[in-house]
Structures are given as C-alpha cells and as structure tokens.
Nucleic acid binder design. Structure first.
Length: 267
DNA sequence: AGGGCAACCCGGACGC
DNA sequence: TGCGTCCGGGTTGCCC
C-alpha cells in the first residue's frame, strides 16, 4: 500500500501539474473522507489554488493560497488519478478536485481521508511522527534503536520510530540488511545496526526513482508509477526462490503484520 | 515498553 | 447476469 516512495512519486508529479491552478470544482461523494460538512468544505476549497504539495511520512500536504492545508492520507488501497472525464478510471471516486478540464480523482479512500486544516491543526496532526528516513543520521539511529527490545518488523513500521515505512518496504529493508523481520532489536550487533541503517535510504531512494510499487497508473499513458513493482525482492514472494540464495521465501505474521523473508540468508 | 487485539471502512474480487 | 460474502490493511486506542 502507499508508503513513502509512492507518496513521494505522487508529490513530485502533482507539483509539476496542479500548482497555482484554481480549483474550479470540488465534488465529495463520500462525506466521511472529509472533516467538514460538504458545503463548508466546498466553500473553503473551491476557488483556491494549491501553491505547493509537500510530504510528511505517508501524508501529502496540499498547501492552499488561503493559509489552509489539505492533509491527505491514502491509508489502505487509496490512490490518485490525474486526468479528465474521458480517461478517468471506472472506479468509485470519493473526492474529485477539478482544475478546469483537468481533474484529480481520489479513489479507494476507505479509511483514508482528505482533511482541511489550519497550520495549527496540521502541526498537531503530525506531531507524533518520527523522523523522515532521509533526515536521519546514523548516530541518532544507533542511539534510538539501542533503546528498543522488540522485533524489527513492528519497529520499522512504527511511525513514531521512523516515518513513512510500511509493510512492504520494511520487509525489503530487512532483506537488504540480511536480517529477519522477527529479529529482536536488542540482539543486533553494531554491524547489523549499521547494515540496517545503510539499507534504508538507498532502497527508498531507488524505489522513488523507479516510481514506487503501485497497481494503478496515475495518468493516461503513465509508464512511471509502479515501476518498482518488479524490483521487490521478498514482499509478496512467498514460496518463490530467494534472489540471493534460491531458498523459498517464507511468510509469517509478526505483530499482526504479514512479513516476507528468506529463512536462509536473513539472520 | 511491548505485544495483542479490536475497531474503523467498504470497494471489489470471487464464488455460486 | 446477479447476488451474497469476505478480504485487505494503516492507524488508533485500549488492555495486560
């Protein structure tokens, strides 16, 4: 599901395509996706423009030219499509923002949301998030993980510990670092902590470069989004051969998270 | 602190 | 085709 690289892929694309264009129309087909009444939301958003799209963890923040923000979380299975009435996917669109003919469709928002917030509300909503992976330095990482005792998997997907990593990339990171997702943090050697740290940024960077893993294109003719789908080394590969050693990839549940790993070359 | 778990939500895939 | 069933999954909050 959408994690840091996918949201970053969206952010970059949206920054190239919707900035400073007036939002000519707002359609809300699912009131639970927003945090106001439909009429209030429309009154506040229609006619405004997005000056910048930022990202924090798995959230996108649409900065409006009214000192307000649209805070998006796609949660499970949410995605976006930028197009028009002729090429829009045949799916339920919970929210649609129009920029003239151009329309941004929010699809698959079940638990996901698009909330209109002030600066204060925004800061408050995001205040408990841990560091962005790209901002994290090795010394801080070593210090923080040294205080932890539990398994790597729940730690890596914990947004307070590290913001933006989810079920897929946590498994990929563990594979890269040759560590089992169930490995306890307090059993890691110094070298293993370094291996874990060193796996994170390059992996996320490469995923962003290739367009993340996504089932759905973001616009007509999109060849970029989902470009990382074929680069996943363990996630979703249960029973298939490990690309490193050939052993069958296993799946197990760790703290109610599905986790894929190689039982042989991950320690 | 960390593990376990339930609740949230409903589109869409799948089975008959 | 049509209807019923059930899965998925990040996050929050609560309990032990």
């Amino acid at each position: 599901m959408p994690e840091l690289p996918e949201m970053e892929t969206y952010r970059i694309f949206l920054n190239h395509n919707i900035i400073n264009k007036p939002i000519s129309k707002v359609e809300i087909n699912r009131e639970k996706s927003i945090n106001r009444s439909v009429s209030d939301f429309i009154a506040q958003v229609q006619g405004k423009a997005v000056t910048k799209v930022k990202r924090r963890a798995k959230h996108l923040i649409f900065e409006l030219n009214s000192c307000q923000y649209l805070l998006l979380h796609l949660m499970l299975g949410g995605w976006m499509f930028l197009g028009n009435e002729n090429n829009a996917p045949d799916r339920t669109k919970q929210v649609i923002l129009s920029f003239g003919e151009l329309k941004l469709y929010f699809i698959g928002l079940r638990l996901g949301y698009l909330h209109l917030v002030s600066k204060e509300e925004l800061d408050n909503k995001l205040k408990d998030l841990g560091p962005e992976p790209f901002d994290m330095r090795i010394a801080d990482f070593v210090e923080r993980i040294s205080k932890k005792k539990g398994a790597l998997k729940p730690l890596l997907v914990n947004q307070r510990f590290l913001a933006g990593i989810g079920n897929c990339y946590s498994d990929e990171i563990c594979f890269e670092a040759r560590l089992k997702p169930g490995k306890k943090a307090d059993e890691l050697s110094r070298n293993q902590i370094h291996a874990l740290f060193n796996a994170i940024k390059p992996l996320l960077r490469k995923a962003i470069e290739l367009g993340g893993y996504m089932d759905h294109p973001m616009f007509e003719g999109d060849q970029k989004t989902g470009g990382y789908n074929n680069s996943l080394l363990v996630y979703g590969r249960e029973g298939k051969g490990c690309y490193r050693c050939g052993t069958q990839i296993e799946k197990m549940e760790i703290s109610s998270n599905k986790s894929f790993y190689c039982p042989s070359c991950q320690e």
